[in-house]
């Protein structure tokens, strides 16, 4: 069993196109255990109830943005150790700094390809 068969990933993005693109890439990578959420708060609730290994989360979302979700996850002990990769189009220095402080695991730059996504994920969890 390789990692890609066991790893559990949650994809959080308010846009269904982005979710579709991310999950499409995940499927190409052979990851099957993924779930999707379209709202940061709802995702937080689900993660508290049933954590996953890794979260791929969009930065810009209504209600709760990616970094706010990361902050909330890190402050809850059941979810504090979940891997978190932020997906953003504008990795500004400010965003990188806050991310680093909150213990962000990695960042995927939009627009991404399956290859860049694979590289980003593997730098966090090792070879898929």
């Amino acid at each position: 069993m390789s990692l890609r068969d066991t790893i559990r990933i949650m994809v959080i993005d308010d846009m269904s196109v982005s979710r579709a693109l991310i999950t499409q890439s995940l499927e190409e990578l052979g990851v099957t255990k993924y779930q999707t959420e379209n709202d940061g708060k709802a995702a937080l609730g689900k993660l508290v109830a049933a954590p996953v290994h890794l979260v791929l989360c969009d930065m810009n979302m209504p209600g709760m943005n990616g970094l706010e979700l990361l902050h909330a996850l890190r402050n809850n002990k059941t979810t504090a150790r979940i891997g978190f990769i932020l997906i953003t189009g504008q990795p500004t220095p400010e965003l990188l700094r806050i991310g680093q402080e909150l213990g962000l695991n990695n960042l995927i730059r939009k627009p991404f390809t399956t290859a860049t996504m694979k590289a980003s994920i593997e730098r966090v969890v090792g070879p898929l």
Partner: peptide
């Protein structure tokens, strides 16, 4: 922002128990 630098933080993947509370007790 194409040339951003971010130091990825690696993570050990542990099996997740189906029961969430089990994770909670491990991590508490």
């Amino acid at each position: 922002w194409d040339n951003f630098e971010f130091n990825a933080v690696t993570l050990d993947i542990e099996p997740i128990s189906a029961d969430a509370s089990a994770v909670a007790t491990v991590e508490t």
